[in-house]
Design a protein around this nucleic acid. Structure first.
Lengths: 130, 130
DNA sequence: TTAGTATTATACTTATCAGCTAATTAACTA
DNA sequence: TAGTTAATTAGCTGATAAGTATAATACTAA
């Protein structure tokens, strides 16, 4: 029973599933419509499985209309993921080099704590252990 | 051999690994420093494995300093992931409801194509099938 | 050289995932 | 009713992942 965020990232960790989401941005589509671009490389049950993963992650909602299951995009779960990523925006940029240098002056070099008489400094708190 | 984006998302799909990244935002740390918060629930080799996943994804760089392996955050691979997410920003917001209604007026209802004489409309192109 | 610390490697178990084929359900159509 | 289309389920395989315990490696220090 993984947490929501893990489930979201896990669902995104597949190119087929990302392609399905990209397709759904253009509007709702049935299962076979979604499957059509992949049928050369994959069978329909395969696509159904991917859809189930997306459904479990809450990214896709399946309705019923006669024998069709119109699928719609639900991007709400992506919000948490996007917020998580935002925390790292600063570290993504080209300023990474200078930032890295700066951090080296702030963080004591690894191993110092065991080489000196100073007590082992416990690692700083972290906030993402869900 | 999964694509880069899949590898990135896959690496993020684990709370332990996300916690490690969060810790590394504060500065470099050795393997045992990174492992310390988890040693109640996981062994050291377990953490080493998680680090290897992060390393393969290019999110963590391991150096050498005597018997220590100082780990540093490398957020560059997150850039692609963030860009991917940005495409969905519009769909995450509360305006989803109205947007959904709007899309329904644009996209023909599922099944219409087989009920009428119109040729089966092929699904629109998609751009994320990497 | 010996002992101790930090880290990784190996080998194994268990669980999950991605894919397939074949069979099944559910709804429409003639 | 029989046939067709849309989608799912079931059962199987092979690959990968997470976790363990134990052993090996790499370096420091006495």
């Amino acid at each position: 029973m993984p947490d929501t965020l893990s489930q979201t990232f896990s669902a995104l960790a597949d190119p087929t599933r990302r392609a399905i989401l990209a397709r759904l941005r253009l509007g709702e589509a049935s299962v076979s419509q979604l499957a059509e671009p992949f049928l050369g490389q994959m069978t329909l049950p395969g696509v159904t499985k991917h859809l189930k993963v997306l459904e479990r992650a809450g990214l896709v909602t399946k309705g019923r209309e006669a024998q069709w299951r119109p699928c719609t995009l639900n991007a709400a779960p992506l919000k948490d993921a996007a917020e998580w990523m935002d925390e790292y925006r600063v570290f993504m940029e080209a300023s990474l080099d200078r930032l890295g240098e700066y951090l080296k002056t702030v963080t004591p070099p690894v191993g110092e704590s065991t080489r000196t008489d100073a007590p082992t400094t416990p690692p700083p708190p972290y906030d993402d252990h869900r």
